[in-house]
Write a protein that binds this DNA or RNA. Structure first.
Lengths: 170, 170
DNA sequence: ATTCCTGCAAACGATTTGCAAGTAA
DNA sequence: TTACTTGCAAATCGTTTGCAGGAAT
């Protein structure tokens, strides 16, 4: 359905351990332009879905159902199917990152280039903590380069048990 | 239904860049002992399932269906439900690793410390290449330790575009 | 005018669960 | 004997898809 020139991630520029300053999530016009390039179209639904992420606190991630729920007050008619179709497309375009947390459903977050972070998840209670690591990104970038792949995204998923669940008897 | 003291992965001991030598997948008696510790039981089914992994080439991973299929010649009566229940339990015990590849179903592999490997996946054609990295594991272990989490597993998932798909026009 | 997009409802496929019978400790 | 386990079949649940009407270019 959709494909594109994805903005590649240049790992070597990302060595700064903390936030470097410039953050550029996809704007509505930028998305429209990229869609049009491919013969695809901007629609109110796509715009609304991207806006959900724009108004989301930095680093938050949502499931398809949560996006749908978030949308409901302003755009009650947007269907869950459309949400699924849209986030999948946006993930393939590099607008969103698709996170594979362990709960049996995917989460999406806006893909800020330099906010690349990783996830530490408790397999029991699914509490998730985000953290950054320039070296993890370097490892991924090196692997991609070695195989001639164009790097899009790189996430370290750490499955673990949180302190609370360690203490629980069950 | 089952929970346990998971054998944690101790990353600091794992700093050796190459294979450290000792490889110890769970033996049948060891599994029996740990099950009994928890008031759980060793059964022919659980033994058979663990044996599938013992006789599997190193680094191979299987889906629940594949395990079930593998089992069929020797133990035709073991149900798919039991396979699902068992691999989930074993993953929580740290006997198996649960891999979240992007295909919509999970794979399992025996949890050998040094077989920790990561995945480079093409987002267009889903071709996947595995690679190793001790530093990725160290990053995950450090993050877990910092937060007081007990590390179970840690995988780097790299989304990229393979050379073939880069060349394709679409 | 073309195509692409949408909402709806039905389909899907992997995984989970209730239950009654079987079995390890 | 107790209560954990199993196989079976039905149920779940996130996600996908076919289709006919609607909309962006």
């Amino acid at each position: 359905m959709t494909d594109s020139i994805h903005p590649p991630i240049t790992a070597d520029e990302n060595q700064s351990p903390s936030v470097s300053g410039k953050v550029s999530p996809y704007s509505i016009p930028a998305l429209r332009a990229e869609l049009n390039d491919k013969g695809l179209r901007m629609t109110p639904q796509r715009e609304a879905i991207l806006n959900v992420f724009h108004t989301l606190p930095k680093g938050e991630h949502l499931s398809a159902e949560e996006i749908h729920h978030n949308l409901h007050s302003e755009h009650p008619s947007i269907s869950l199917s459309t949400v699924y179709r849209t986030v999948k497309m946006m993930a393939q375009m590099g607008v969103l990152r698709e996170l594979e947390l362990a709960e049996g459903h995917k989460h999406y977050e806006i893909n800020l280039r330099e906010s690349h972070h990783h996830h530490l998840t408790c397999v029991r209670c699914t509490k998730t903590i985000e953290f950054k690591s320039s070296s993890a990104l370097k490892v991924g970038a090196a692997a991609a380069e070695k195989e001639g792949f164009l790097l899009l995204d790189c996430q370290l998923v750490v499955h673990a048990i949180c302190p609370t669940c360690q203490r629980s008897i069950l």
